[in-house]
Simulated assay, not measured.
Amino acid sequence: MLRLRDIGFQAPARLLESHGLELVPVADAAPIPGSFWGDDEAGLIGTRVFARPATPVHSLLHEACHLIVMPPERRGSVHTDATDCDREEDATCCLQIILADQLPGVGRERLMADMDAWGYSFRLGSARAWFEHDAEDALAFLRERGLPSE
């Protein structure tokens, strides 16, 4: 599984900043503030996404994309759990796959493989099958919000 220590914090920080978010590095042994899953999984509080070097890249992107897909007026009140509805969750998964192409050394193929390895669950059995054959509603949601959808 690809982790932030493998790609560094610089490119992910720039990507998040381009969406009005801040990537906050956390020391290796410290708990990650706002982490829903605990362990090495990314956390979020307001417009800040917390991660340490051992945080999986898919986790960082997933939490950041929760914030990106939600209306800006909701972002400030988010702490740990950002899910609002199934449609927003699907759009989050879709956007994290799309944005993976903007991170050197990541890309959507690698990200989808890591999503499957972590245990994301999709009706069609894999992140790739879902993204390629069942994500039209999520892509429409992203287009409605003016977010990347290709």
Results as ranks from 00 to 15, higher is better:
Arg3Tyr: 01
Leu4Ala: 02
Leu4Val: 02
Arg5Val: 05
Arg5Leu: 08
Asp6Lys: 01
Asp6Gly: 03
Gly8Met: 04
Gln10Trp: 07
Ala11Ile: 05
Leu16Gly: 02
Leu16Ile: 03
Ser18Lys: 14
Gly20Pro: 06
Glu22Ser: 11
Val24Ile: 12
Pro25Gly: 14
Ala27Met: 09
Ala27Asp: 10
Ala30Tyr: 01
Pro33Met: 12
Ser35Ile: 03
Phe36Lys: 13
Gly38Ser: 03
Gly38Val: 04
Asp40His: 08
Asp40Pro: 10
Glu41Asn: 13
Gly43Thr: 07
Arg48Gly: 13
Arg48Ile: 09
Val49Trp: 09
Pro53Ile: 15
Ala54Asn: 12
Ala54Ser: 05
Pro56Glu: 13
Val57Pro: 06
Val57Gln: 11
His58Ala: 06
Leu60Tyr: 08
Leu61Phe: 14
His62Lys: 15
Glu63Leu: 10
Glu63Val: 13
His66Pro: 04
Leu67Val: 06
Met70Glu: 07
Met70Lys: 05
Pro71Ala: 11
Pro72Asn: 14
Glu73Phe: 12
Arg75Ser: 10
Gly76Tyr: 11
Gly76Cys: 07
Gly76Leu: 07
Gly76Asn: 08
Ser77Arg: 14
Asp81Glu: 03
Ala82Cys: 04
Cys85Tyr: 09
Asp86Tyr: 15
Ala91Gln: 01
Ala91Thr: 00
Cys93Lys: 00
Ile97Phe: 00
Ile98Tyr: 00
Leu99His: 05
Leu99Gly: 01
Ala100His: 03
Ala100Trp: 00
Gln102Asp: 13
Gln102Trp: 02
Leu103Met: 04
Leu103Ala: 05
Pro104Asp: 12
Val106Ala: 01
Gly107Cys: 00
Met112His: 01
Ala113Asp: 07
Asp114Pro: 02
Ala117Tyr: 12
Ala127Gly: 10
Ala129Val: 09
Trp130Phe: 06
Trp130Ser: 07
Ala135Gly: 04
Ala135Lys: 08
Glu136Val: 12
Asp137Val: 11
Ala138Asn: 11
Ala140Tyr: 05
Ala140Ser: 10
Ala140Trp: 03
Leu142Lys: 04
Arg143Ser: 12
